[in-house]
Design a protein around this nucleic acid. Sequence first.
DNA 1: GCTCAGGCTCTTTTT
DNA 2: GAGCCTGAGC
Length: 693
Amino acid sequence: MPVDTPTRQDPFATLNDEQRAAVEHGVGVAGRIEAAPPLLVIAGAGTGKTMTLAARVARLVLAGADPQRILLLTFSRRAAHEMARRAGRTLHAALGFGAAQPAPALPWAGTFHGIGARLLREYASSIGLAEQFTILDRADAEDQMGLVRQERGLASTEKRFPMKGTCLAIYSRVVNACLGVDDVVRDLYPWCLGWESELKGLFRAYVQAKQQQQVLDYDDLLLYWQHMMAEPALAAAVGARFDHVLVDEYQDTNRLQAAILHGLRPDGRGLTVVGDDAQSIYGFRAAEVRNILDFPARFDPPARVLTLDRNYRSTQPILEASNAVIALAAERFTKNLWSPRGGERPRLVTVEDEAAQARFVADDVLVRREGGLRLKQQAVLFRTGHHSAALELELTRRNIPFVKFGGLKFLEAAHVKDLLSVLRWVQNPRSRLAGFRVAQLVPGIGPAAARKLLDAMEQAADPVAAMQAFKPPAAAAAAADWPAWIAASDTLRHGTWPEDVALAARWYQPHLERLHDDAAIRAGDLAQLARLAGGYPDRERFLAELTLDPPEATSDESGAPHRDEDYLILSTMHSAKGQEWTAVHVLNVVDGCMPADMATGSAAEIEEERRLLYVAMTRAKQHLTLMVPQRFHVTQQRQYGSRHLYGALSRFVPPPVATLFDQPAPAADEGRPPAGAQPLPAVDLMARVRQGF
DNA sequence: GCTCAGGCTCTTTTT
DNA sequence: GAGCCTGAGC
């Protein structure tokens, strides 16, 4: 990926042979598009995958393809943004546009879920879907599942029934993997065996409840789309809108998404998929690595396969260490990455504990910045959102600005959900979920009264009238508070956007203060929500798009740094995919964190964790540091609550692999004896502890 | 019928 | 350490 030297005139000049073959595939000698058979590009980390895809889009447009008729699908929002940006820029250059001219738009670039939502809205009337459907995020979907679970008396069974989150996880798996409830429970949720028929009933009721309220959850966006593509007339209509379909991160797609693609392009013509099986890290979301492996043989004649293994991102020493990590994978499909660029070896740094780790990383980051490397070119990666807690404290203490990606909770905070529910209920009075939440904010109204109210609204032809006619329980407080809600909701129904948000917040304010001690801090989030609202044309779009495209990053309470400011990147490994930085620190490369203790249930899960470490390592261009705290705090342990664990270096870095790293002797921090600079044996301490019981 | 305390289970990564 | 359920007290 010769990003190092972008050529303005000819974005194709710097392609290597394999990249060029991928870019030119299906474009005939005369420069016109011929019938392009299906194409699979196996692209290792840092081999210019996104650039190649962007160049292919540009090439297709130059050859006469209409940008409006190119469908560009990716898995994550971050990848979608990056892809749209790069494709637009390459196209801009390829067309020889001047600096003042805006890049040509690619209206159909987005995530599967986002594009699905758009298509469903457009075809809503022909598939019996309400056009103004709203989208439930996962927390909402869980709450909805919880409501149905309760209604069906599954909350108080003698032997405990799976919790709402587990129920939704099973349901989601069933939908995304196109499997039966029995199979999923048997293979993945064995502790729920015996509840299969109750689960099936629950899921039927859950689906019915969603349809009644005109809401879709994330999975529905794919599921309804797939059903749409299974209907020949609709499939033909939708398929005819696109001449080219390009899919990025194909190794992360699941069976449902594969079915959608198949419906969209049954013979594979005009279909290009790009991916890397070594970076498949979404198995927990039913990603199906077989999708990419079996792709060629799906078609007759089979799809063309091109492989990119020349790495343009990292130095050879970093690649050697990364290759060594992935080489130990049980199954291995791709070749080694290579690069002519030399450089320093990656480091394996042992520190005493998490606090020392935070200090070390902060020191290191500042040293690099002094050396001229901007903070934005440095990233710290970790397995789960809370692993960065100690580091965040340290960074705040030292006034080092940072932005954190992944593990985001803004939309899940109770007060944010409350305010959004107010808006959602006004938008869609049939939404039981929003109503259930809002009604119970009124003192004196609990689950029972709320249910009565919602039942009345559901029966009524005019739910709003039913709400206004509702007589709240005689409890004294309700007398004053209920009419206040009726008045507020009435104003909101006829309000103006985006002032509505402030109005709703004003109604909510006394409840916020009553319910939360830290109301002042939370009020700040609500103000943030009001600001965000200004970026959307109306309430409907706001509610629909916020769920699919929530604010991406959180930072410390000083608020998100300005775009032009410099800040350090903190990110979960999952959110880091597709990104690259000059210097990367990986935290907690310790058994129990990497692999995560939660993910050591099966060999397949452990393999996925290995790929995850590989993904993290291959983000680094020049400097890579794996951190190994010898003692770290575990909050999520079974019986005992929080405690310390003495961790061993991750099993993914056994001694032979560790020799590929520099291992600086730990600074004799606080007079401690310099603990083992020699590679530690990979001991599965966690398993031993478990077996002790 | 509402609310709060106490005892229990489950705990990740993303759309 | 949070979420969920139950049961006591208002």
